[in-house]
Amino acid sequence: MKNAVKIFGFAILVTAFYSYVGQTVPQKITYPPESATLGADMSSAELAEAGETIISGKGTCLGCHTIGSGADPSSLRFPDLGGIGAAAATRVEGQDAVTYLAKALYEPNDFIAEGFLPGMPTINRPPIGLNDDEIKAVIAYLQTLGGEPTVTLVTDLGYTTEVSAAPTPGATAAVGSGLDGPGVFQTYLCGTCHNIDAAGALAGPSLYDVGSRLSNAEIYEAIMDPDATIADGFAGGVMPATLGATGFYTKISSEELRALVNYLSAQTGG
């Protein structure tokens, strides 16, 4: 028994020594990155900060929108968001800023700002797929552009995104091989910016006759390196930024790409 006590004492001594060694090295707690920690107790200002990250990051909003560019609105393809925080309250009669912004994000094509075309993707759906909390953060940030943020995570926007059955948070579109051309076109939401069955341009040029304009190789290049040749009257940088931000280039498989190119080259107008 005496031995057992001695040995136990020795064990405590040794483990205590190692614990001590553990205390002598730098003590650092590593927290998860900000975007992953939208907490209910965040103030509107903190939320706005997170929103700013989302807007330039996951939300990919800046692929199309500008903030305070100061350019003539008629030269822009998408509304400039500078001052939106103040303007939002006045856009639609009877809607306060938060309601307006929420509607603009959840049902983007419901109200189109004058002089602009529809075509903004629904933000809580793939490929962007922000969750409700992230959208609130975005709204809080947009409010700071010309106003004070009022939204917190407990604010009820009147919208809820059903959590998809897929286990990943912010699940993205089902991707797998075996998709045909139209399927790929739909999956990667090319139709958001490009008409495929009509001549009118949306954010990007219409593709209804692309097969008669471009060879397969050119179509391939136009997808994989969009800025190599830019169609007249369209801004460079938008498509690579959008596709890059949605992870198109990392997700698309070579079969899918081939299917897409074949599909597009078959679009010869009419």
Partner: peptide, 22 residues
């Protein structure tokens, strides 16, 4: 004084001007 981590682990992706760099 704080023990700095000289080579902190990079994130898996960074956003560069709206584009995601893996």
């Amino acid at each position: 004084a704080a023990g700095r981590t000289i080579h902190p682990p990079p994130p898996a992706t960074v956003s560069f001007k709206g584009r995601t760099v893996d």
